[in-house]
Lab assay of single mutants.
Amino acid sequence: MSIQHFRVALIPFFAAFCLPVFAHPETLVKVKDAEDQLGARVGYIELDLNSGKILESFRPEERFPMMSTFKVLLCGAVLSRVDAGQEQLGRRIHYSQNDLVEYSPVTEKHLTDGMTVRELCSAAITMSDNTAANLLLTTIGGPKELTAFLHNMGDHVTRLDRWEPELNEAIPNDERDTTMPAAMATTLRKLLTGELLTLASRQQLIDWMEADKVAGPLLRSALPAGWFIADKSGAGERGSRGIIAALGPDGKPSRIVVIYTTGSQATMDERNRQIAEIGASLIKHW
């Protein structure tokens, strides 16, 4: 067993022997301040990774656009098919120029040779490549099948209805392509620590998230040296922004954090800054 596999296998073990965790309302004060600064709703939840206990939450059962955070769930569904012998990570998928959609920095470079399922998941999570996500959605049967996968996990809230990039439209009061912070946090925890996926697939999923290259201005910008984070960000229309993450000190994750916002007129930089400040408060009061 590799060191990384050992780390993920012992996530519940280490967490069980940690000192009790206590909620700190100071972080919620910052979440509410972010709402004021952005002029928009902000949803927040913080779960203990081992027990699933909610440590703090704000608007945990209000719907927010998922945006690209759905790509972690998508690759979880792909990995479940791999575990069941219905898919192979090494299978190569070929596609054409007509398949390319807006923001496809990886797939646009491989029109000639195609990409493997493993490479597509890596591109979808680490670079948020939209064509990679659409190609992977095709392998599982489309958005409705991802929703069905989530329902089978016990998540009857999260739903995907459309493809990239239309799913980022974020129309107010439109339930399409949305989740709730509580539902997303619980589902992410199941994917990373539950028995739904094999140990190898859980490790692969967290490795992809740990290698995320496009979430630097968010929670990662607030992390002290030595902290662990595996995350996936999302951005959408109407001032929408979000991030889902597993993080913790001492090089291992111990909490799940989900943050979503929508309806702001603020710039992307300002949305990023507010999420980073929430992260800084979380870490300060850990």
Rank of each mutant, 00 (worst) to 15 (best):
S2K: 11
Q4F: 10
Q4S: 14
Q4P: 09
Q4R: 10
F6G: 06
V8D: 09
A15K: 04
C18R: 01
L19P: 10
F22K: 09
F22R: 10
H24K: 15
T27W: 02
L28S: 08
L28C: 07
K32D: 05
D36S: 13
Q37Y: 15
L38Y: 09
Y44M: 09
L47C: 09
D48N: 08
N50K: 12
S51G: 09
I54P: 13
I54T: 11
L55E: 08
M67E: 04
M67T: 10
T69H: 07
T69S: 06
G76Q: 01
L79T: 02
L79S: 03
S80P: 01
R81H: 10
V82H: 09
V82W: 07
V82S: 08
G85D: 10
E87C: 07
E87L: 11
L89G: 06
L89K: 04
G90D: 14
R92A: 09
Q97R: 15
Q97S: 14
Q97G: 12
L100G: 03
E102A: 13
V106C: 09
V106Q: 12
E108A: 11
M115F: 04
M115W: 02
S122N: 15
I125M: 11
T126F: 03
M127Q: 12
D129H: 00
N130Q: 04
A133S: 11
L135Q: 07
L137S: 05
T139Q: 13
I140R: 02
I140Y: 08
I140M: 07
P143A: 07
P143G: 06
P143W: 02
K144R: 14
K144G: 15
K144S: 15
T147C: 08
A148M: 15
M153G: 08
M153S: 13
H156D: 14
H156L: 12
T158K: 00
L160W: 02
W163T: 10
P165R: 07
I171S: 14
P172I: 12
E175V: 15
R176K: 15
R176D: 06
M184K: 01
T186N: 13
T186K: 13
T193N: 15
T193V: 15
G194Q: 10
L196P: 13
L197C: 05
Q204S: 10
L205A: 03
I206K: 12
A211I: 07
D212T: 06
V214C: 06
G216C: 08
P217R: 09
R220C: 03
L223Y: 03
A225D: 14
G234M: 05
G234S: 07
R238W: 10
R238E: 08
G239Q: 02
I243F: 05
I244M: 08
A245Q: 01
L247K: 05
G248F: 01
G248M: 01
D250F: 12
G251L: 09
K252G: 10
K252L: 10
I256R: 00
I256F: 06
V258S: 04
I259N: 01
Y260A: 02
T262M: 09
S264L: 04
Q265M: 12
Q274R: 11
I275M: 11
A276I: 07
L282I: 13
I283V: 12
